[in-house]
Design a binder for these strands. Structure first.
Lengths: 350, 350
DNA sequence: CTGAAAGCGCTTACAG
DNA sequence: CTGAAAGCGCTTACAG
């Protein structure tokens, strides 16, 4: 068994670049060029190499490549996001890393003061590029520092991408607007909103979408129907208490994220309100809490895992371009979201 | 800047094995032997090499090593643990991986039927060893499969480690017992318990500690003071409703984990009970939820990040030993836990 | 107990 | 546009 297992260990493909070269009838160098998307290869040669790669099911040995060009260090500067978010993000990021040969390097940085130190530490630990998930992607000082240092970086899930930095995100405005249109289609007219942390750009944008959608439908927004929040469960609790304190209650609450929506559900239950019969409550993001609470939340699914994969691919490309001296242009990727309807929303009782 | 940064990138140490060899006055081979803990090196030579390593601040180039011996693939077979748990675990595991050159490979496996397939996939994807966090570490069939395949594995946070597999854990019994002694020292005599998922060994052990501690203190345990749970928030909600339904209420509830304790706090608040004035509620694990709810939970801190680091070190050692043909013995590491007192517990009103 | 040589699979100058 | 040669930093047989 000991020897038998050995064979299987390195995946299916144990073909090397030389095998590909032989099959394609070219040199290993040329195969390397094709693998790395080098432009100076004729189409006909490229075709032969591609065919050989496919037939041999060749995959680069990332370890050997790393030995030559250095490890591809991918820094992740995280800062107290919800653990579910980071978690999902990591699963997606690691998945791509193990294929591209990237080494993820984590660094936590809670307050603004430690930002500079955290970035420096990441670089000292071998990061060749930095991934910036929320909420740091909205920190002007963080972006400025990254820009000054001149290290490739990718912002993730920022509501308002800047032209100087690559970003991967969803269309928060369209997502929140779709949720509102859905609620309105259910017959809701008196819809309350729980805002997210005002420092986060998606919070601002989701709020604007709420306001615009109300106006679009010709629905008035009473100031007392909007409660501030901070994206936390606790703030959702507080906001919902405020929204549901008076006699006249909204028929639906749209919270700017799931954690706050979960808090709102808890408050509703505390007031013996049935969800969704007495009140509809919706969230945003589709994090695990959305399916943990009861009833499960209607929400907008944000494809965090895919966003992480896309971000890794992007940063790898930027790092490679930088090493080869190519002008790696800034890229903005917009991934699709989905409206997920579950049990927490219902048509208004007429 | 472009060139200046290059220098800093690869951390401080850019010394190679040859630099060390030169300084120590030996061959690179000997340095390699020392680095890998090979026994056939004289103490005096080893000393010279060690000194050179230290003075040059040498660190092996894991990429170069991987090019020679193959990547160190570390599989992580996870199965729907709380996202906070996985998250913390990943942070610790990745930290060690980036230093030891390990490549973490994730694979999710929810039901027992897919276990065999998940393990096979992990191996096909290059895993040379497998980390088994809860609850899979308590699955007999999983352990049996791993044993049959003969791949190095480490169980994490199992309550009852088996002699054939390495494990990293805390002393669940002592932790739960300490919590009970603490509650009793506060004057509580009528202490209820919310059990964890009976399939998880730590749940069984924490329950036993509760029973033993009650007996040790000469306190009677009424059957209605013990409610079943599944380690989830929802099950904590149900269990607490059951425990607090009657007139005669316990003065303290000890839940077998934080999620259930959080649920119990929500129920207490729903019944207008003040925590901890009217009732003390404690958890176990010290996951993020413990400091998310209000009041923050008194709990037993389980050092998940350190346990992950220890598990990575252990599996790396096992994989290395296996490759060199050494008999890598099974190791069981016990890490220290801590009783963390916060606002959810208080002395009984007399 | 210690070392000289070869090689891991890939990529980087250097030619043509 | 394409290739022969050298080398990334380390470790594996093979000698002594």
């Amino acid at each position: 068994m000991t020897t038998a297992t050995k064979k299987t260990e390195r995946s299916q493909s144990s073909a090397t670049i030389y095998d590909v070269a032989r099959v394609a009838g070219v040199s290993a160098m040329t195969v390397s060029r094709v693998m790395n998307g080098n432009a100076h290869v004729s189409d006909i040669t490229r075709g032969k190499v591609m065919a050989a790669i496919e037939s041999l099911n060749y995959q680069v040995n990332t370890a050997a490549r790393a030995a030559r060009v250095g490890t591809l260090g991918i820094g992740l500067l995280y800062s107290n996001p919800s653990s579910a978010y980071l978690n999902t993000f990591l699963v997606g990021a690691m998945d791509r890393c193990s294929q591209t040969g990237g080494q993820l390097i984590l660094e936590r940085c809670d307050d603004l003061r430690s930002q500079r130190a955290a970035i420096a530490k990441l670089i000292a630990n071998g990061a060749d590029g930095i991934l910036v998930p929320p909420p740091l992607c909205d920190s002007k000082s963080a972006l400025k520092q990254l820009d000054q240092i001149g290290i490739p970086s990718v912002a993730i899930a920022t509501g308002r991408p800047v032209p100087t930095m690559s970003a991967v995100r969803i269309d928060d405005y369209a997502g929140a607007r779709d949720m509102m249109r859905y609620l309105i289609s259910l017959g809701h007219k008196d819809i309350a909103f729980i805002q997210g942390d005002p420092k986060h750009t998606p919070a601002q944008i989701r709020y604007k979408a709420y306001m615009d959608a109300m106006e679009e439908a010709g629905l008035p927004v009473k100031p007392e129907r909007v409660a501030p929040g901070l994206f936390t469960y606790r703030s959702g609790l507080d906001a919902a208490r405020q929204l549901l304190a008076k006699k006249s209650k909204p028929t639906a609450i749209f919270a700017a994220n799931d954690d706050m929506a979960a808090g709102a559900v808890a408050v509703a239950h505390g007031l013996h309100l049935d969800v969704p019969k007495d009140i509809t409550i919706c969230g945003f993001d589709d994090t695990p809490v959305a399916t943990t609470v009861w009833p499960e939340l209607t929400t907008i699914h944000q494809p965090i895992e895919d966003m992480a994969r896309a971000a890794v691919d992007l940063i790898v490309e930027l790092i490679r371009n930088r090493r080869t001296g190519e002008v790696g242009g800034v890229q903005h990727k917009l991934l699709p979201y989905t409206l997920v309807t579950r049990e927490s929303s219902g048509a208004i009782a007429s």
